[in-house]
Amino acid sequence: MAIDHLKINQLLQRLRSRPYRIYEVKTPHTGYLREFLVKEGTEVKGPRGKWREIPGTPLFTLEREKNLKTIKARVSGTIHNLRTELEGRFVEAEEVVLEIRHPLSQEEVISEFLRETLILITAPETARYLLAPEIEKRIRKEGLGKVFVKPNEEILIMSFMKRETPIVHTGETMVIFRIFFTPQEVVTAGEPLLGLCLQEEVPYLERVISRICEEWPEK
């Protein structure tokens, strides 16, 4: 891997000048939007705690089949474009209800950096993905940045149109440094699944991550 220092510096500069992202909050399913629990400009929090056990700020309630569900913020930020006209109405699935302007966290900046730096294994199709059982076992035991993947080794399983297809690592022996997907969630074609690097590059990556941690301290 030829690490492009200039590109990395440009990336960090861009993140410094626009350190936020807009998240659309959509209805997860159909139902009646009973009540908004936030207003335009309200500051909300995403899930917190070591295990993300503290739920995010309640945003609105949705009732379906006599079950009232509170939709909570999945990221922290400020409420914008609240569609108050939906209150009391039946809404379809995936209806945009509001937006959250979310300041990037340290972890998100690190993720952006790694996407630009690592050798990425991207999703060949829009599909669901799983780690190959053997790789998953080794990562659980040894942790990321320590597990090697050899040429022709089964690394992922793609669940596409109800069929499961193994994905084999075609390059040289590398280290799995980052997982970019959540198992069983749909990943769009071209999106990164795994980030790999050579063993000798691991110390450099760790140094840049330390630098990011200094610049973007955990709030």
Partner: peptide, 19 residues
């Protein structure tokens, strides 16, 4: 027509059926 989250979710189908 109604947009739903999943054809396999009975709650989605019944919610639309009632509406």
């Amino acid at each position: 027509k109604y947009r739903i989250a999943d054809y396999r979710d009975p709650n989605e189908l019944l919610s639309v059926a009632d509406e």
